[in-house]
């Protein structure tokens, strides 16, 4: 924990582990795409468009996973007053927002052949849309102050508030959805998922996680270095 709280050591650690994450990302992504696009059979109902799911479902998982990581890092930052944890949360946010956006776009692409329209106010898609706005709020707040430290601290509080609200939003959107269109929507996945489909899903999820770690480490490193540069400039100015 204390090793991670020390910015200089964290930069070194990030420099060591980022290349390994990059390698892991490339390998698993290649394997995942092979499994998803070539090795797995088309769905008897959805046909070839089921392959979109191999991107959509892991992206949606990552959207939630990244938000949880952000909230966890923010909690660590606020409780133990560790600024590097704030930077980790700040580094995570744009990646999570991109995964969320990817989940929305792929969901919409999948929806066109399935539902005959680009967008359906399906409970899951709607929840992901709200999550996307939560990410945007976090990013906007973290960059809205002249003092970056103030921004990341305020955004940490917001991340925790948002995290508490995610289940409430999910529940209310499900409730709203059942009120207005009672279970008429074709649900992807479900309990009966064939092993030939589960394998590409899981491999893609691993690939996305490796990608997240890789980019997060790079961003974290550059955030810390940018902070150091600011400090040096300030010292020059006032020194």
């Amino acid at each position: 924990m204390h090793a991670l709280a020390n910015p200089s050591r964290l930069v070194r650690l990030a420099g060591t582990y980022a290349p390994w994450c990059a390698v892991a990302t490339v390998v698993t992504l290649a394997a995942g795409l092979f499994l998803a696009l070539i090795a797995s059979p088309p769905d008897y109902q959805q046909g070839e468009s089921v392959r979109i799911m191999y991107v959509h479902v892991p992206a949606a998982w990552m959207a939630l996973f990244c938000y949880s990581c952000m909230a966890a890092a923010s909690a660590v930052a606020l409780i133990w007053r560790i600024p590097t944890a704030e930077l980790a949360a700040k580094a995570t946010a744009p990646i999570g927002a991109c995964f969320t956006f990817l989940a929305l776009v792929t969901g919409s692409l999948w929806g066109k052949p399935m539902w005959g329209t680009w967008w359906v106010w399906d409970a899951r898609l709607t929840s992901v849309l709200v999550l996307f706005f939560l990410y945007l709020g976090y990013i906007a707040l973290s960059t809205a102050f002249d003092d970056p430290a103030r921004g990341s601290r305020a955004a940490s509080i917001l991340a925790l508030v948002g995290f508490v609200n995610v289940p409430v939003i999910k529940f209310s959107v499900d409730w709203w959805n059942t009120l207005h269109q009672p279970a008429s929507v074709v649900r992807a996945g479900g309990p009966a998922i064939d092993a030939s489909m589960l394998a590409p899903l899981l491999v893609m999820a691993v690939a996305f996680t490796c990608y997240y770690l890789w980019v997060m480490l790079l961003r974290l490193k550059s955030e810390i270095l940018a902070g150091k540069i600011r400090a040096i400039q300030l010292r020059r100015m006032h020194g």
Binding site: L136, V161, G162, I169
Partner: peptide, 10 residues
């Protein structure tokens, strides 16, 4: 508005 409106949805 950006921070609060999503939280108002429930």
């Amino acid at each position: 508005a950006l921070l609060i409106l999503p939280l108002y949805i429930p």
